[in-house]
Design a protein around this nucleic acid. Sequence first.
DNA 1: AACGCTTCTGGAAACGTTTTCAGAAACGAT
DNA 2: ATCGTTTCTGAAAACGTTTCCAGAAGCGTT
Lengths: 348, 348
Amino acid sequence: MEEIVSRSGVTIRDVARVAGVSLSSVSRALNGGKNVSARIARDVAAAASTLGYQPDFMARSLRTRSSGMVGCLVPDVSNPLNATIVRAAEACLRDAGYLLIIANTANDPAREREAAARLRGRRLDGMLVAPAGDGNARIWRDLVAAGTPIVILDRDPLEDEDDIPSPAVLVDHRAGAMAATRYLVALGHRRIALLTADADMRPSRERIAGFRAVFAEAGIDAAGAQLCIQASPMDFPQGGTLALLRGTPRPTAIIALGTRILAGVLRAARDLGLSVPRDLSVLSVGDTDLAAVHTPPITALRWSLEDVGRAAADLLLQRLHGVGGQAQARTLLPVELVLRESCAPPAA
Amino acid sequence: MEEIVSRSGVTIRDVARVAGVSLSSVSRALNGGKNVSARIARDVAAAASTLGYQPDFMARSLRTRSSGMVGCLVPDVSNPLNATIVRAAEACLRDAGYLLIIANTANDPAREREAAARLRGRRLDGMLVAPAGDGNARIWRDLVAAGTPIVILDRDPLEDEDDIPSPAVLVDHRAGAMAATRYLVALGHRRIALLTADADMRPSRERIAGFRAVFAEAGIDAAGAQLCIQASPMDFPQGGTLALLRGTPRPTAIIALGTRILAGVLRAARDLGLSVPRDLSVLSVGDTDLAAVHTPPITALRWSLEDVGRAAADLLLQRLHGVGGQAQARTLLPVELVLRESCAPPAA
DNA sequence: AACGCTTCTGGAAACGTTTTCAGAAACGAT
DNA sequence: ATCGTTTCTGAAAACGTTTCCAGAAGCGTT
């Protein structure tokens, strides 16, 4: 019960000596508990706690070929959206006894490659990854081929050599974007701008597709749909948005894809003296404090990031523990439109 | 150069066989490169790349007793402040060849204990930790005593058995709070409320101390200083803040310690129809998009979270690589007052 | 040619586990 | 008492590295 010596360096060998049994018996007693007599179990437990024995995971991993760790490759943990996903995943995985290793890829394929290589030799039991573009598809295929379970986070699922898609947690961005666009169209908007960075990632692609689909189905002149794609979200306040809002005809509504872009849009609107929603309707894709607390509060698309993390962890654990045999390979999470006060009919 | 077989399972033994040399030579050639002939170096390199050899870190760690991993214990990665710290630290550590393992503690000593125990057996090379309260001081002392370098993140530095304080990265919250409070006092405010969660953590404690010091030095009736401490930041909008703002006399200025609290305050002010800064001055401790983009933009205390993460990583690396011998044990980062438009003289 | 020195090499012993295997002990059934 | 099972045990072989050690090879000096 009481660790007399919590000083490390105590090995299973010491426990065996103190308990007066063999190495193998200690291992059995400590692990399975199967095929071990009551006496030995008791003595070993006593010896272990007296000595403050802590098993060495490195040695164990070497032998069992499983590290008890899963990697998480994500563009940027400091993005609140990713951070929430990571936190939820970490909670699930921790409860299952796994450790989470994170690596930022900055959406840069080279970085990502490097990270994958680094994680490669560590015998990670599995990975959660949001691949940056398609450039590294081969890497992931190799990893999958080598037997590492991979769960994709809101990106295009990979296919392995047998064309079986990898498990993935997807968010129904297309439906969300359609709901948002329909809402703006119903309010009377005809000139709607969609602002996004990285248009080639699945989320943006799906949203753009939904956006266009609604224009098509409503028979609106597609010219009204303005797509603004910028490499760096940081350029929006000074560059993109200002230019966009100064243009003629000015869009009457803006859909901002992501918190940082929303921040840029709001800043630009303020700089130009445009009042939301009187002069400009603003709709945020992704709900954060910023959207909820802003004056006026911003209508937003919301989905549960906790659910993304949790679902991903569950999918991975399912693979790791081998239950259900390929049971569920994909999770699609719903997107909800949260109506607030930042959208109104366009000024006549 | 070209990995013919990237399939894993290739061991140093295979490389040795292909290169026609011994195990030890391969190891030497691959690692040090010291005391190894040019011929062998060449052959080994060729064999390794032909076979697509990837060293097994588990085995290596077992032998060298160093895992190449550092742990990061933080209350909550999904908090943007922590997330930024984590990202910066990860970048530094990655460049130095280390992997970062994160564990959320939710500021809960029990969680923290559990996480520490979990990390214990993994031979982590070091840890970055923001301890949750003083409850677990013993754990950290033990870890330090066992030789694990630990760097503290903006919390009270621990002292080991020789009373040498552990390395720590601190933020000068006291000076920041003093600057903020002086600013409000200079504007004419006399009834200022400070809203915070967890008043016992170092950052809050320091801020409160600074806050009080300014009241004392200005000879203002200390009754004007209202401290509001709430367990959960989530209760502020509904509970604390509303009650506070409805009270008489109403504070003329509020200092909100933390993004979430700021959100609560702004929401409460809006609910009560109070205009910022006419009816109420608001000052945020911690600068985020929310503060910068809000209408009006919120005056805030800012410090560089990247610097915190970077400094912590540097301090740790310094320890790990043993350079400079205890060179620098503490880093104090400055806090800056960013003047925006959310503070004004109180209404007469 | 013998010697000492340095530089290089391969065998073997770690590192701390788990797991296989063969055999011992226990035990009920003949 | 003997046998067949089952349950338990300890020795030993892995797992894939690094590192110690002893000795071989090279080489310049006497």
